[in-house]
Amino acid sequence: MTDDAVAGEILAAAGAGSEPGAGLAPFTGRDPEFDLPRAYRIAAAVMRARAARGERPAGWKIGFTNRRMWDEYGVRAPVWGPVYDTTLRILDGTPCALAGFAEPRIEPEIVFRLARTPPEGAGAEALLACLDGVALGFEVVQSLYPGWRFRAPDTVAAFALHGRLYRGPWVALDGPGWADRLARFSATLTRDGAVADHGAAEAVLGSPLNALAHLAAGLPGTPFGRGLEAGDVVTTGTLTRACPVAPGETWAATLDGLDLAPITLSFT
């Protein structure tokens, strides 16, 4: 199959969502040569198709930054893909309707907003100077592959598992100490008031800034035709396990050691 044909199959499966019969057989199981370079070419074809139907890239999601998840999902390095204006939301009390998502899960994440394009080769500290906002957010991720059974190239091709990104209020990164605080905080994720998991900054490649640096270094080598731009949002990867969600549940995330507002998201 051509890259465009594979992209069309992915978009068709996403359109089916969680309806009976939806789902993809992993491409890595169909073709032993289906690797990350081809997966990123297909992801770029998906992005072009989504842009053609009116969706605008609004930033990036980074996945598999939490090494605790690598053995569970059979991956060995982070991946990334676009966030769109159609998949980005502000947390305002509106519940998330799960109809149309395929096996959705929730991930609490640190979200950055870029004030300017980072210089080539920028490390974590230099990237900090390119940011004008940080927030706590929830990414609702999904797997078009039934049972969450896939390899890394499969995920890259299929939106890098991105479904929707909800963010809390922006906080300015002014004043000293942000790099240190972003490497030392902890997180608690609850479902209906009961603790579902704990996490910490170190789970995201040691710091969300390190995840951003990884994206900044690797993105130019992928065929999206677009790098990091001013105004982009970047969600940096889950601080906890990715937990399955269901209608009627209310999830919340709080941080200790980083002064970002707690967030809550309900599902219908």
Rank of each mutant, 00 (worst) to 15 (best):
A122V: 14
P118L: 13
W178R: 03
I90Y: 02
E120W: 11
S143T: 13
C96R: 12
F159Q: 01
A58S: 07
W170V: 02
M69T: 08
A129K: 15
F112C: 06
G54K: 05
E139C: 11
L128D: 08
M47A: 06
T65H: 08
Y166W: 14
R53G: 07
G81L: 03
G93L: 10
P57G: 06
K61P: 07
L128Y: 14
A129T: 15
G54F: 04
R89Y: 08
R68Q: 10
G63F: 02
G121C: 14
P146K: 13
L128T: 12
R181S: 01
P78T: 09
G133W: 09
H162E: 03
F64V: 05
P119E: 15
Y145W: 11
L114H: 07
D85V: 01
E125A: 15
G100P: 11
E120Y: 10
F150H: 06
V171M: 00
V79R: 02
I90E: 05
D71Q: 12
P153F: 12
A77D: 09
A126M: 15
A157R: 01
V46A: 02
P118S: 14
F112A: 05
R76F: 09
P118Q: 14
G100C: 11
G168I: 04
A99I: 08
A152E: 12
R53D: 09
N66C: 10
A44Y: 04
I42H: 01
P82N: 03
N66G: 10
L144V: 06
W80V: 00
A43D: 01
P119V: 14
I62P: 03
G168V: 06
G100D: 13
F159G: 01
L165Y: 01
A126W: 14
E109W: 14
A129Q: 15
T117R: 14
A124E: 15
F64A: 09
R167C: 08
A135E: 06
A52N: 04
M47H: 03
A44L: 05
L136K: 02
D71G: 10
A122T: 13
P176V: 05
D180Q: 07
G147W: 11
L161A: 08
R48E: 03
F112E: 02
G74W: 12
L173T: 09
A52Y: 05
V79S: 08
P104R: 12
Y73S: 07
S143C: 12
E72G: 08
W80N: 04
G93Q: 11
G147Y: 12
T94G: 05
G81S: 03
W170G: 04
A122D: 14
L91S: 04
A152C: 09
G59H: 07
A58M: 07
L98Q: 09
F159R: 03
E107W: 12
E125I: 14
R149D: 05
D92E: 08
R76E: 07
Y145S: 03
P169F: 11
L165A: 05
G163Q: 10
E103M: 13
A102H: 12
I42N: 01
